[in-house]
Nucleic acid binder design. Structure first.
Length: 476
RNA sequence: GCGGGUAUCGUCUAACGGUUAAGACAUCGGUUUGUGGUACCGAGAAUUUGGGUUCGAUUCCCAGUACUCGCCCCA
């Protein structure tokens, strides 16, 4: 924490001060003290760590994230989804209306605050609501249907952090507006499947269910409440409360006794109205046709109240039989209407990017590694140092990715860095070369080097790189 | 929000209640100043915070914090 770092600074500065005071005179002591004090104050203020549940995505993790981003972007194009970005902050009411009162997300887990202007706003707990808002606001209903939107970004939930569960996490959303045909449902599941499998994640399972439309769900819910009322004594404390607020979620309870009660409870898929039953049936037919790994889970409910008909989740299983939820979604045929738009059937799903990355690591998935520089530029002496910035820019302009360590003085230490980076060529500019307008081109593999004029530099570099590529291809 | 576990350099690990808190890896510098590797030398770098017990706490006790596991919930 902050005080740890204070100590560190205190200690190191104190030590340095000792050295200085003994070596020279105590002239600089007051400045050092002042610097120390300022540093301590700053570190106290910022605590040297982000708030609870927030974390950094460090460079070491980025190859996984890059791979994921690339796959998402590619799949979005393939399936005709267009990118959209909406703000992380929206009016709180948007989420209260869409996700629904009585859900934990809204009641317990939403970051809400009042702005200086007095607006009640919230950090988005999911992406769909904002997309719906944008859809209405920008009149996307006039676009040809379905309107397919793809979005990624941070979402926020005030949870207790755990592994794979953060207060800020990243979701990717695919949503299709304006089409009620169940083939869209199937296509979206296919898309989700494509995303995870092209990342190398295996042992995927989809769970699907239908929770009906408002009409048949109401009848079902009444039936369910009646059933649970009769068995109320056997339910856990939480579920007794749920009976009042959100009875569907009792089906989802993990308590043994509730599971027992729930297994014999009436199932929503048995109580669907004709329209919903037909919809669900044809979805299943499509899924069978696609040969996707799915099971029907009659107890799958989902925590957001805007869902209708189809709901589904993506799970992956590990060797120990543990299952990890990667994402989920469903149909929300009435959300746009509830937000004040015209009747627009829609379906969408979100995946947790953090959890996907977690899975990628677990299965040692392929990562996307940025191209590495194959050339290093070393300089020696003041004049060469000045020249080197231009040479560097020249190389970049010609598409030659170049590394450097301009801050280092000795040629030896620069070559050491070059060696560690595994570059194939090191360019050396010393005092003499700077005056002659030449550069030493050193082949790091053979160790040979030649001095070339500036004009011939790019050609010389390209020649060596080209030869190396041929060699390495033959080697493979 | 509730319960359990854990906490030492950047990382991984050591230290009968008494050490100058040790080592490895990594980082930086050097081995006569314009050439990589190895080797060798050197430097910086930690007891999560606050209390208590004790002559003395990294070590024992209590609390806070963070991480972690299970619940709740979810992605």
């Amino acid at each position: 924490m902050a005080k740890v770092k204070d100590k560190i600074i205190k200690k190191s500065v104190a030590k340095k001060m000792d050295k200085k005071t003994t070596a020279k005179k105590a002239v600089k002591a007051p400045t050092a003290k002042k610097v120390l004090k300022e540093k301590m104050q700053v570190q106290e203020e910022i605590l040297m760590q982000p708030p609870r549940g927030m974390r950094d995505l460090l460079p070491g993790d980025q190859p996984y994230w890059n791979q994921l981003r690339r796959v998402l972007a590619r799949v979005a194009i393939d399936y005709g989804f267009q990118r959209i970005d909406t703000p992380a902050v929206e009016y709180a009411n948007l989420f209260v209306r869409s996700i629904g009162k009585g859900t934990d997300i809204v009641d317990k887990e939403m970051y809400m605050f009042t702005t200086k202007g007095g607006d009640k706003v919230a950090l988005r707990p999911e992406l769909t609501a904002g997309l719906g808002r944008a859809y209405i606001q920008h009149g996307m209903n006039v676009l040809s249907k379905p309107v397919k939107l793809f979005s990624t970004g941070p979402v926020y939930r005030y949870d207790r952090p755990q592994e794979g569960r953060y207060r800020e996490h990243f979701q990717a959303n695919f949503d299709a507006f304006g089409e009620q045909d169940p083939i869209l449902d199937a296509q979206l599941i296919q898309l989700a499947h494509r995303v995870v499998t092209s990342l190398g994640i295996k042992n995927i399972q989809f769970q699907v269910n239908s929770i009906g439309c408002p009409k048949c769900r109401k009848e079902y819910q009444e039936l369910l409440v009646a059933y649970f009322e009769s068995k109320k004594q056997k339910l856990c404390l939480n579920c007794k409360k749920r009976l009042e607020i959100n009875p569907l979620r009792i089906l989802d309870c993990k308590e043994d006794k509730c599971i027992q009660v729930a297994t014999t409870a009436p199932q929503s898929i048995d109580r669907l109205c004709t329209e919903c039953r037909v919809h669900f049936k044809s979805l299943l037919e499509y899924l069978d046709e696609l040969d996707l790994p799915y099971v029907i889970n009659p107890r799958l409910v989902r925590g957001l109240s805007y869902y209708t008909k189809t709901v589904f989740e993506i799970w992956s299983g590990d060797e120990e039989g543990k299952k990890h939820s990667l994402g989920g979604g469903g149909r929300y045929d009435h959300l746009i209407e509830e937000l004040g738009g015209e009747h627009t059937p829609a379906i969408g799903f979100g995946i947790g990017m953090d959890r996907i990355v977690q899975e990628m690591k677990r299965v040692h998935a392929k990562m996307y590694i940025e191209p590495k520089p194959r050339v290093f530029l070393a300089q020696l002496g003041d004049l060469a140092k000045k020249k080197s910035l231009n040479v560097f820019a020249e190389l970049q302009k010609n598409g030659i990715l170049t590394a450097e360590s301009f801050g280092r003085g000795s040629l030896k230490s620069q070559l050491r860095v070059a060696d560690r980076l595994g570059v194939e060529i090191t360019l050396i500019i010393g005092q003499k070369e700077a005056l002659d307008e030449t550069v030493i081109v050193k082949d790091m593999v053979s160790g040979t080097q030649e001095t070339v004029n500036h004009e011939r530099l790019i050609i010389a570099v390209r020649k060596i790189l080209k030869n190396n590529v041929v060699v390495s291809h033959e080697g493979e």
